[in-house]
Write a protein that binds this DNA or RNA. Structure first.
Lengths: 121, 121
DNA sequence: TTACACGCTTGGAGCTACTCTAAGTCAAGC
DNA sequence: GCTTGACTTAGAGTAGCTCCAAGCGTGTAA
């Protein structure tokens, strides 16, 4: 599978995939006789995980660390699990932010509805 | 109120407040006789709203547009309400992303738990 | 009165995480 | 043989901060 198909399967753009590879966030990606990248099913699964981690705010530094651990083999499984569990907690923090913002917006929108005598910002 | 107090009240750093002002995302901020910025209660409310919009992913371009409309006066209220309502919908999209990511993480974490014969990435 | 600290000011450099562009290679189809 | 299209690289450009240096004005302490 070439890069554009990989891109449409994992959700990251081709540019981002190349950038992630250069930044050490992918395990070895093979090349065909034409010199182009060939993505395996495992590669796609990895990219898809990165897509979700990025989409929910994990830093590249953390993703790089996660990749390094995965490359190091099964001995690092517990450390990797820790990273994912920590990120899972981050998701709760973010959800709370969304909830609070929704309240803030609701109040602001309501203030726009009532036609007050003074200018409402 | 000077910038550091404003910063601690709205949640944006002093640097970010100055940056936002320079980028046309604040209505006029007054200056004291010493040449330093003086923030009014209205300023703080505006900054706090920007804090929430940023925190939940609104682009600077959109925030700038929102500010421009607010400066233009009450005639733009309905357009501003539209912006906030659109952003409110965005929050739902983001929440769904968090939910899906949580599922992805749960699956991955579970795969780490079962000690499989092959190396699990 | 001089000395130093503190909080503010500006302009500009540096950083993260992409995103886009230019210039080139290679294989397939006409 | 020529064009088209997907790929390659290096490197420039962008968004949104974040930090730093150099300088100014006020306040306390010696």
């Amino acid at each position: 599978m070439q890069i554009s198909e990989a891109s449409s399967k994992c959700g990251l753009s081709s540019d981002t995939i190349r950038y992630y590879e250069k930044s050490g966030m992918l395990p070895e990606v093979g090349r065909g006789g034409d010199g182009n990248r060939r993505f395996s099913q495992e590669n796609i699964e990895w990219l898809t995980l990165l897509y979700w981690l990025r989409e929910t705010g994990m830093s590249m530094a953390q993703m790089r660390r996660f990749t390094r651990l995965a490359k190091a083999g099964p001995a690092t499984v517990s450390e990797r699990r820790r990273i994912l569990m920590d990120h899972s907690e981050q998701l709760h923090v973010r959800r709370k932010m969304l909830d609070r913002c929704e309240t803030v917006l609701a109040v602001k929108i309501a203030s726009y509805r009532e036609r007050s005598p003074e200018d409402r910002n």
